[in-house]
Lab assay of single mutants.
Amino acid sequence: PKDEAKKKVKEAIKRGDEETAKRIAKKYNLDWDDAKREADEER
């Protein structure tokens, strides 16, 4: 599900692992900028 994928993307971003985050986002066709902004807001 997309929500689960987005959570994984945000967790990867918070760990500083943007490569993984981008790969997950691409795989699930998520909006990378959107997920990154959300992760930054939660930090």
Rank of each mutant, 00 (worst) to 15 (best):
P1C: 12
P1L: 14
P1F: 14
P1K: 14
K2R: 14
K2Y: 14
D3A: 12
D3L: 11
D3V: 09
D3M: 10
E4C: 14
E4N: 08
A5I: 11
A5W: 14
A5Y: 11
A5N: 05
K6P: 03
K7A: 12
K7G: 05
K7Q: 13
K8V: 09
V9A: 04
K10W: 13
E11Q: 07
E11R: 05
E11I: 04
A12T: 02
A12Q: 03
A12M: 10
A12G: 02
A12W: 08
I13Q: 02
I13A: 02
I13R: 01
I13D: 00
I13L: 14
K14W: 15
K14G: 08
K14R: 13
K14V: 08
R15E: 05
R15F: 05
G16P: 00
G16A: 03
D17C: 10
D17P: 00
D17R: 03
D17H: 05
E18I: 15
E19L: 09
E19K: 11
E19V: 11
T20E: 15
T20F: 11
T20K: 08
T20C: 10
A21R: 00
A21Q: 00
A21S: 05
A21W: 00
A21F: 00
K22Y: 07
K22M: 11
K22R: 14
K22E: 05
K22S: 03
R23I: 12
R23T: 10
R23F: 10
R23K: 14
I24T: 03
I24R: 00
I24P: 01
A25C: 10
K26V: 09
K26D: 12
K26M: 13
K26E: 14
K26R: 09
K27F: 14
K27D: 12
Y28L: 02
L30K: 01
L30S: 01
L30Y: 03
D31P: 07
D31H: 05
D31Q: 06
W32T: 01
W32Q: 01
D33P: 05
D33V: 08
D33C: 11
D33W: 09
A35M: 15
A35C: 12
K36I: 13
K36R: 09
K36Q: 09
K36A: 07
K36W: 12
R37P: 03
R37I: 07
E38W: 07
A39Y: 12
A39W: 09
D40I: 10
D40P: 04
D40G: 08
E41L: 12
E41W: 10
E42R: 04
E42P: 07
R43M: 15
